[in-house]
Nucleic acid binder design. Structure first.
Length: 232
DNA sequence: GCGACAG
DNA sequence: ATCTTGTCGC
């Protein structure tokens, strides 16, 4: 699985055992490839993914699901086990998590129009978080849905489901802080790629039921708890 | 130098 | 993320 950067340059998935410096440089190159002005994406099936780790065994397992927005239910699931090849470093999460996520996505038989990842997308120091990185590899629109902040400043959104405030950094809006449920901490939504922030908010709310976490990610997380033993 | 820091 | 017991609140 390769990805072409142009001018003969290419990056292979298995070359992700890069140095931290190289990882940051790659992010800057990939950042220039993001599609920030996107038309409304037609999306009835959205994918979700999450990863669990076992540092003792040096393994991780990724779970992904396909969620039908119209039927409000999971229509397919898949998991993939991978070796951990990169440490957790704030800002470089995709190098640790994306390989496993991509393997899990490859196992899906059904199609989907967009994906939601458990981390930030554009709301990243170099504007290339996990969701954006994965988007460039799968060639589809993605949304970043994180449970806590990485960077940026914001005002606490009103305590009402559906309300949100902007997440700012260096003079630009990099995402929103969205209240998916009353009396509960908000989540951080940012675009991954090829989708507008406005639609990212709409899609997130369309995937949200009675819980704080949107179904695609919540279901992936639940799926992990059922398969974690595989890597222990 | 100090604080912040997705999963 | 992961390690962990009970506990407070909708």
């Amino acid at each position: 699985m390769c990805f072409y950067l142009g001018k003969g340059e290419q990056v292979t998935l298995h070359t992700w055992n890069v140095t931290y410096k190289e990882a940051r440089e790659l992010q800057q190159k990939l950042r220039a490839m993001l599609i920030l002005t996107a038309d409304e994406v037609y999306c009835d099936t959205i994918a979700g993914a999450d990863v669990a780790y076992n540092n003792k065994q040096n393994k991780c397992i990724a779970a992904c699901v396909l969620y039908s927005i119209k039927e409000q239910k999971i229509i397919e699931t898949a998991v993939a086990v991978e070796r951990i090849t990169f440490p957790y470093i704030p800002g470089l999460l995709s190098f640790r998590e994306a390989p496993a996520v991509l393997q899990a996505f490859k196992k899906l038989k059904g199609t989907f129009q967009a994906a939601m990842l458990d981390g930030h997308g554009f709301a990243h120091p170099r504007r290339l978080g996990l969701a954006s990185h994965v988007a460039l590899w799968i060639g589809k629109p993605t949304i970043g849905c994180a449970k806590s902040k990485l960077i940026g400043k914001f005002e606490t959104p009103p305590d009402k489901a559906g309300s949100w405030t902007e997440l700012h950094d260096k003079g630009e809006i990099i995402g929103v802080v969205l209240r998916t449920k009353k009396n509960t901490k908000p989540v951080f939504i940012s675009i991954g790629n090829a989708v507008s922030l406005a639609q990212a908010i709409v899609l997130t709310l369309q995937c949200t039921t009675r819980y704080r976490i949107p179904e695609p990610i919540r279901a992936s997380h639940n799926l992990l708890n059922q398969h974690k033993r595989i890597i222990s």
